[in-house]
Design a protein around this nucleic acid. Structure first.
Lengths: 211, 211
DNA sequence: ACACCGTTAGAGTCTTTACTCTACGCTGTG
DNA sequence: CACAGCGTAGAGTAAAGACTCTAACGGTGT
């Protein structure tokens, strides 16, 4: 791993543990086993490191999302599986980059450049979620809804996906397979009333297979 | 307002704006229009200020919760109204003390004393939510559920209540009456499938009256 | 008039911070 | 072999940090 990559990785770890506010560039350099001068050779300042972390987040996130969702066949079981996989994927990202979402508003407030980049990414994420739900309605897995109801439903689902980890964190619960599975269950519990009959059967089938 | 109270209030404002990591005691003192020495006369250190904010949060929060929920009559309309009022109340708290939830894990990590106090408060909050839902089931506003389903449902609702503000924040949306009302709508959308017929009517009545 | 004490100011200390500067080694190329 | 240039070390600087100390203020009781 290059020095630059090691700096980013170390900074991410320290930020997650202690918060980016109290972690100094000297800390990062020391934890990397390099000199401060070396760190500043690779990054002009701390904000640039944070932006590098954000760039990694978006790049890898987009790749993984596409890997799960781009080529899925238009089958009910595949749709349900893709949704569960996406949930797990988002949880993994929220965990890996947890300092980022925690400190989001403060970070954006301190770095207008980052704020602009984030706004763009957020817009496209929103679009992806909307498209995914619309596709599922079109394919007949989710019962048709009035526009207003659909919007609320999408927000409900997205909220659960986005904040399950924070919910665990606030509650002092550990993040592990069991608690992640519980998040999945909550999501399904919200989803169930809106599924069509075939989708409900497919879901039951997936569940049975898992055991 | 006493100097001590002014320090707490000013610190809260600055923490919310800029994050507690980058706000120094000197900043707080300057913003208060007092000397650093004076600040340290009232508080031994920064952590003690944060704990004072937390104490205010819990004290006032408990008062307001009781004011809304303790004496409500066992009527369907009252139950629905109490739930909506509680939602609005929690949003107000999340907003007023927003730095606290944002930085929660980091704060708890840095101050074991605070961590212990918070664990206790969180336990009792969890209990309150559980009791409120159980009461509503008992009074016939919410359809009976299997234990497992009930747990998931409660978590779903509580998650929405806890994180609606963060959801707005992450999305770069302003917090105002319209966005708060939308949060209420999302909550209702999650609740509706589980309401009993009389509760659904009472809800419709409340909605009509609001217009 | 005076002593007392909670409150305040503000200068001062020691540490840490972000960031700079200079110099040195290593590696590949003419 | 020379030498260019990337990557690195580490001392150094100016500013800001948390926190301390001493002296004085101002209101109250005697």
């Amino acid at each position: 791993m290059s020095t630059r990559e090691r700096i980013v990785e170390t900074a991410l770890t320290l930020f997650n543990q202690q918060g980016s506010g109290v972690v100094s560039t000297n800390h990062i350099a020391a934890a990397c086993g390099i000199s401060p001068g070396n760190l500043y050779y690779h990054f002009r300042n701390k904000e640039e490191i944070i932006r590098a972390i954000f760039h990694q987040l978006t790049r890898v996130g987009a790749e993984e999302y596409l890997a799960i969702n781009a080529a899925r066949p238009p089958e009910t079981a595949a749709a349900v599986t893709a949704m569960l996989d996406t949930f797990v994927m988002v949880q993994r990202f929220n965990w890996r980059y947890r300092f980022f979402k925690r400190e989001l508003t403060v970070l954006l407030h301190h770095d207008p450049l980052l704020a602009a980049e984030f706004a763009e990414v957020h817009r496209s994420h929103r679009q992806m979620v909307h498209d995914a739900i619309a596709r599922s309605v079109g394919e007949g897995f989710i019962a048709p809804l009035a526009d207003e109801e659909l919007t609320l439903f999408v927000e409900e689902l997205w909220l659960i996906i986005l904040f399950w980890l924070n919910y665990l964190e606030v509650g002092g619960e550990e993040v592990n397979d069991a608690t992640l599975a519980r998040g999945n269950a909550v999501l399904m519990s919200a989803l169930r009333p809106h599924l069509t009959a075939p989708a409900r059967e497919a879901l039951a089938a997936v569940k049975t297979k898992e055991r």
